[in-house]
Design a protein around this nucleic acid. Sequence first.
DNA 1: CGAATTTTGGAGTGAAAGCACCAAAAATGT
DNA 2: ACATTTTTGGTGCTTTCACTCCAAAATTCG
Lengths: 209, 209
Amino acid sequence: MSETQKRGRGRPSTFDRPSVLREAMKLFWDNGYEGTTFEELISKMSISPSTFYNSFGSKERLYREATENFMDYAQTWIQSALSEDGVTTRQAFAHLLESAAEQFTREDLPRGCMVSLSGTHQAPDLMPIRDMMVEYRAASEIYLADRIRKGIREGDMPSTIDVDALAAFIHAIVRGMAVQARDGASRAKLENIGRVAMEAWPEARRVAA
Amino acid sequence: MSETQKRGRGRPSTFDRPSVLREAMKLFWDNGYEGTTFEELISKMSISPSTFYNSFGSKERLYREATENFMDYAQTWIQSALSEDGVTTRQAFAHLLESAAEQFTREDLPRGCMVSLSGTHQAPDLMPIRDMMVEYRAASEIYLADRIRKGIREGDMPSTIDVDALAAFIHAIVRGMAVQARDGASRAKLENIGRVAMEAWPEARRVAA
DNA sequence: CGAATTTTGGAGTGAAAGCACCAAAAATGT
DNA sequence: ACATTTTTGGTGCTTTCACTCCAAAATTCG
């Protein structure tokens, strides 16, 4: 892609931006923002300090870019579950939790989720970073609620349910799965958590009522 | 209590150990280990650097002591819910989640939980601290499983259930509630999450079966 | 080919971090 | 009262942090 990209004049970069950004993402994901040093970054990214500064601005800007990069990627499997056609709302959410179990235990990426737990206990001077994470998390809960409302509109969810509470519940279970994933839980264990969680799904109770 | 305490000879402390330890705990709880500086600590604890070093050893040792202090306190309300006499296992866990909602939104302490999310993304050289947190979390899941097994022994839980999966589920929901609490969720919202979670409780399905 | 433009490597910088030391201060025990 | 023991305040230390600067290198445009 950098071949087809029209390059201005000047010395060309020797590194591939997407791939070094991914390396930065993995470092931040594993060690957190404060736990990742400048030296570690430029070492794993294989770039010099000046290249770092020149190409990514600062540690904080790189973190934001890495987080955006992560979210773009995460949206893929989230959308894939929630926007799937021809499935019930219940099936969509069951699929979402299965995907979370799978994604949180991938071999080629750090375990868990980069945004689920980040910035929850952070220095006051890093408030902007914390706020970014809080916003991302809040947005994903709204996303869940929207999918549930779609289910109500389409008739496969009872209109009497508390949409926000159910969305908050699913949100909480995913964050909890992220904690366990980082603590070493297997994919099977995470899948079990998701299965138990789906027992709380309103539709299941309709059978009982 | 320090009045009744037999003091050896030597100059007496001017500070109350439990209360400055509590200040340290609150700082670590809010800002995390890395996000809390030596200066902040001695400032909020109102002690000098040498007093700090002399009385608490190091930042890491203080953190461990503050964490133990937190766990002692947390065990109080956890035990209170899970060891309550004359209630079903289901009621005990419902009570536990209600207590979590209450405790995670206390006005006199930082929001959420000090150990639920700590050390999940941390620098490699702080691995001992991370390990401590992972152990605390694992221990609490075992604690939940033990309570469920007690329910099976006493006959108010079906013996066919997957105890570990159910314990992992409750564990996950509590950690997820901690994330939401730190992101600003109200007590009522956390209580709702707990209520929805309890819909997944096995006993509820027995009615349907 | 030469000028312009951009990237690169390496050394260096100020600030802050956590910690350590030392002598003075304030208690106890005989 | 005097020696002993322990705590205290202030200062200084070493390391690491994120970052910056500058000249050389490598490209494009005219």
